[in-house]
Amino acid sequence: MIEVKSLYKKYGSIDAVNGISFKVNRGEILGFLGPNGAGKSTTMKMITGFVRPSSGTILVEGQDVQEHPVGIKEKIGYLPENGPVYGEMTVQEFLRFIAEIRGFRDPMEKEEKIDRVCDLCRLNSVRHQSIETLSKGFKQRVGFAQAVLHDPPVLIMDEPTDGLDPNQKKEVRKIIKAMAQDKAIILSTHILEEVGALCSRVIIIAKGALIADESPESLLERNRRFNALRIQVDGVDNKTVRNALRDLPEVSAVTLNDNYFEIFPKNKRAIEALVLKTLRDNNWLITHFEKAPVGLDEVFWELTA
């Protein structure tokens, strides 16, 4: 669907994007992660044809973005950062304008398309309000409606949930997920929880270069604490416990933090059963036992810092 091959973008002497290549297939939701200024937005702008690459090729459904700019734009739905919209228009006027420019001239077809996205994005209650009077959540949904009006096979969204409250975020994610099956979707975000909740694949970009391209699950496995355990034991001195655990063949290290033992497995394999058995065999009283919480935060930090 989308194929990006060794993409470069220079602004003067600054390399905004430095040789990025990746593919996105139908049915995938690709999450773009990276610190601010890493080149996420620039890459998306190049795919949509808004910014011209310094070199490299972008194919959308096999067509080159540079050679068929208008043809490609028909296939792409794009929600730019901060969801810019013409504030002085009403939601309906704005969506009509988009529909007409997208080539839906037949009044029946046009209204049908607008009705569909108003239902999808729950805009019916504000259809006749001018956009500048709407709340940020509604504005964002108008931008979103505009992007999916023509039911595009490719959807590109730059921080679609930025600035929304938790309920609105959930709402927008639900809409995105609902449309995912038959589209190739790229979205950028700096909210890590969103990646786990939404994306089937993650690309991490830092300083214009691609440093990871994998599923959120395998990205989690890169966490130092993946499959590590946090336990607390009563009635026995720390040294005894530590030594007993450290001697286990599957354990690589045991540390003591704030009265909690952290047990790290070798090769990040699961060790719950083994550790539990050891503690039971010694008849120690277990007051706390959990898998160490792992997030993408640490992984992200380690990869991009």
Partner: peptide, 14 residues
């Protein structure tokens, strides 16, 4: 200023 040119120029219009 409002960023809408990004919207406009990514619509299928030359």
């Amino acid at each position: 200023r409002s960023g809408t040119w990004e919207l406009l120029l990514t619509l299928p219009i030359r």
